[in-house]
Each structure stands twice: as C-alpha cells, then as structure tokens.
Amino acid sequence: MNLRLLKAFMTLAEKGNYAETALALAVSQPALTKQINLLESTLNVALFSRGRHGTTLTAAGKRLLPEAEKVIKQATVFLQHAAQVAKGGEGLIAVGFGLSSFYFAPQCIAQFRNRYPGVDVSLEDLPSDQQCEMLQSADLQVGFVRVPAQAPLESHRLFEDRLVLVTPENSRRDVQEWLNALPLLRLYHPRGRGLNAQIDQFLQQNAFAISTTQQVEDIQTIVALVLAGIGVALLPQSVVHIAPPGLHVMALTGEAVQWQIGIAWDPRINDTARDNFIAMVKQG
C-alpha cells in the first residue's frame, strides 16, 4: 500500500476540503484528486462524497480511516526505528574477549550501554584465534584479541599485558626454584592456546625447566589451586588484580614476557553500531 495515498486520505478526512488539503500536503489540487481517485480505485470503494457542505467521508471511508491511521502510525514507528538502526542507536553487537581483557571488556560494554541503551550487547569468553574466525563469519562483531590481527581483519592496540608468576606464598625462591618445587598449572590447550604459546616461548628463551605440569579448565581453578599450595602458574598480569588476597605475584623480566592487546573487527562488514562501539573504545 502506498503510504502517500493513505496520508492524503487521512488529511482530506481531517480538513474536509480539497484546497486546504492540497496546501497542507504541498501538492496541487489536481494531483490530490488523482491520489484520492487512485486509492479509491485500488480499494474498489468510495471514500468521500462531495456536497454543498464540503467533502465528507462515506460510511466505508469512516470504517477504513482508523485502519489507515494505524498503518501510518506503524510506518512512522518503523521509520523511527530504522533511523536509530542506521545511526547505530539500536541493534545487536556480539563481543568476544579473552584472558587479558577479562576485566577491561566488561567495563567497555557497561560504558557503551550507558551511551547506547537501545543496542543489545552479548559477551563471550573465547581464545583470540577463535574470535578472529568468528569475526570473519559475522558471528562476532568485535573482538578483544592479541594484536596485530591478520588481514582481512583490522585492529587497534589498546594496552600491553605481561606474564607474571603466581605462587602460594612470598618467599626468596626464584622462578626456577618455584618451577622445581611445584607443578606448573596450565590451561587446557584449546582454551589457553595463546597463553600457552606465550608461556612456552618464555620458558624456552629463558632456559627454564619445569618438573611437572597440570592442566586445568579455567583461570579461577588455577588461582584456587595456587592458593591451596598445589602448584604455581604463569598468568597474564591483567588477570591477577581480580584474584583473592593471599596470592603472591612475582614480576618477570627477560624476553617473551609481554604482548599487545587490542580490539579487532572485519571492515568488510558494514555495521554502524559496531563502529560506534569501536570509536568509543578508541577514545578511552
């Protein structure tokens, strides 16, 4: 249905005069007459009758006018929503994050929701390589990953993260002595692929030997096991600040202790809400 014809119908019903209606709609009177005739022809029903007292609605016109008003109202609401979506004020963003952005990513989302309450945001904990795959398939719109990201993705650096050694107590032991004394707790490879690669690089470049290792499902379990004195762990420094009291953190030096974290996206996919999120994160 042509909304312009319905608008002409509603306005003429309100004013009851072709000349006034044509002026209100900024069209010529012959053009208005043509619109009304076309609508009546399309509906196969007379909507108006002309008399000495002006133009009045027929019985059919009176019956159909509320429906026309409803359609116009729904169309107006639709166009308002479409305008919000077009400028990124409404929509859906799926965001991925990893260990290094465990605290940072939720902060960004909370800030974004305050600015754009009409945008629904989901957050999923995923390794960087999986996030990069999902960004290209549009299953994620934004990812907090190790950067730089590989083409065709684009990325923006946000901060640096570093490895630290977490131990159950503060002592004079050095890194090698801790690795000799207790098992090294690590994430299962599918979950901690990036972190495990960083740990291996650090151990190899510094010629550290480990006595035993124990694989764990998640960071929270690793922290709990360290606090229980069952093992030690090499973790991102950004994760440690959410750990409970009693966990000792040892700063590390040497090669392969740091990496870059940033935000990544697929520029081939147009998404204004996502672009607003990226711009906000870049601004800090």
Score class of each variant (00 low, 15 high):
I263T: 06
S49L: 07
L3I: 15
A243E: 02
I210M: 00
P30K: 12
K87P: 06
A279S: 11
Q220M: 00
K70S: 00
A13W: 02
Q130I: 10
L25I: 11
A86L: 15
G88T: 06
H81R: 15
L43W: 00
G51W: 05
R50C: 09
W259C: 05
V71A: 05
Q258H: 01
A60Q: 03
D125R: 11
E67T: 06
L153W: 09
S122F: 15
A233F: 05
I263K: 01
V249L: 09
G192T: 12
D174P: 09
L3H: 08
L5W: 09
P117L: 05
A224E: 07
R4H: 03
R193E: 03
A31M: 12
A26R: 11
Y18A: 15
Q29W: 09
Q35I: 05
E177D: 15
R268M: 01
L140D: 07
K34V: 03
M134I: 04
V166D: 02
A224D: 12
P127I: 15
L99W: 06
V71K: 06
A149D: 03
A224M: 07
F159D: 04
S101D: 04
V147Q: 09
A59I: 12
I36S: 12
L6H: 11
L92Q: 00
G16C: 01
A251Q: 15
L3N: 06
K62N: 09
Q214M: 04
D266W: 05
T11W: 00
N270R: 00
V257H: 07
S155H: 12
R193D: 07
N37W: 05
Q204S: 13
H189Y: 06
I210Y: 11
Q205N: 07
K34G: 11
M250H: 12
G98F: 06
D125G: 14
P106V: 07
V216K: 10
Q74P: 01
W259N: 00
P127F: 11
A197L: 08
